[in-house]
Write a protein that binds this DNA or RNA. Structure first.
Lengths: 200, 200
DNA sequence: AATGAATTCAACACCGTGTCTAATATCCAT
DNA sequence: ATGGATATTAGACACGGTGTTGAATTCATT
């Protein structure tokens, strides 16, 4: 038998079209108002799609949003696994380029990410993003700093991850003094210094 | 004339009652479902308050939520101004106790904070909290590390603030390994190490 | 006790929702 | 290219929550 799962017959062209139309219209609306104020009616009108068609694919607006998030997370996972090259002896340069790659990823998907991470954003998305990097990062820390307890590594990771997202979020919101480059550089340096926490 | 502003005739007992009833019922519901699924109807039924009365005080559920947030922020501001004692030469202990105080504050208002900072929480609240501490903290950094540029201080603050909230949020969610004490201690140590960023 | 204000109750039109049907348009495989 | 399958459309429907109103009533304050 061939790959029993995910034969991926590639979605019908019509479906892809309507989904794209809905997605674009959704982004336009989210740039104006929070999700909870986006109505299926106006969304479909803007997209030029029949309201009934929407319900053929999604339960409600939140379902649509989740699907878009899922796509983004899938891309992120793909990127992370590509640089899976485990770095037990991660040099400062390695982590630096890693951080830069992350920033680049979010920069590439700027429009959606700015919305999901901005005010009116979805905190679940934030939680998922952070959870995605947790296991791998904690494992890496414990290799790098053998003396550290699991709890210590977890505490450190959460602090660092949130801090990272904080700078990233500021960049995405278009703060002029928070360029992607400067923010990424700062994140790298701060994290490096903070790592001394393990020598406590 | 007496204090022209905020004569504070103290709200009528009746409105205080209805507001507390609504507030409590709101918290109960928020523990079960996200805000966007809370309906005015069920909220009033649970609170034992007439639906018309609700509209006498609030536009919608979000208005109610904002008022509760505002109260919390006001308390926080009060607490911050009380320890206004500017610490140009802030010792490690001073910042440590400061962090501990912050954790204590959130612990005291645990129920509401856990909701506002948890999944389904309000990202605006997070933004407000962080903005509240920004100016003062940045100013303090620039006194402590005279060589640091404003931008550098801002970058550092955002990273630290988000990291702090990250640990706090984990504690509030009741992660067993993230006690308030351990989380506060970790935050203090990590921040202390990270401060070396200014010596870069 | 009297005044003023807050609450209640019922009713109202309005709007978005979610579902359904039949008709139409479009895709995909043969 | 033609077929059958499938997606989209248009319209209608009941349902439920919304936000507002008016009159009656309860309650707090003086």
């Amino acid at each position: 038998m061939e790959t029993s799962k995910t034969p991926k017959p590639r979605e019908d062209q019509r479906v892809r079209l309507t989904k794209t139309l809905l997605g674009n219209a959704f982004l336009e609306l989210l740039a104006q108002k929070p999700v909870q104020n986006v109505t299926v009616k106006e969304l479909c009108e803007r997209a030029g799609v029949n309201r009934g068609t929407f319900y053929l694919h999604y339960h409600d607006v939140y379902h649509l949003m989740e699907e878009m998030e899922a796509g983004l997370v899938a891309d992120l996972d793909r990127m992370l696994s590509e640089m899976e090259v485990i770095t037990p002896s991660a040099t400062e340069e390695a982590t630096s380029t890693f951080i830069h790659s992350l920033f680049a990823f979010f920069e590439k998907n700027r429009e959606l990410c700015a919305i999901l991470l901005g005010e009116n954003g979805d905190k679940k998305f934030l939680a998922v993003i952070i959870e995605r990097g947790r296991e791998k990062s904690v494992a890496e820390y414990r290799v790098k700093y053998p003396g550290a307890s699991r709890q210590k590594a977890e505490l450190f990771y959460h602090f660092i991850a949130w801090g990272f997202i904080g700078l990233l979020q500021q960049s995405l919101q278009g703060q002029p003094s928070f360029t992607f480059k400067t923010a990424a550089a700062a994140a790298g340096q701060i994290i490096q210094q903070a790592s001394r926490y393990f020598e406590t």
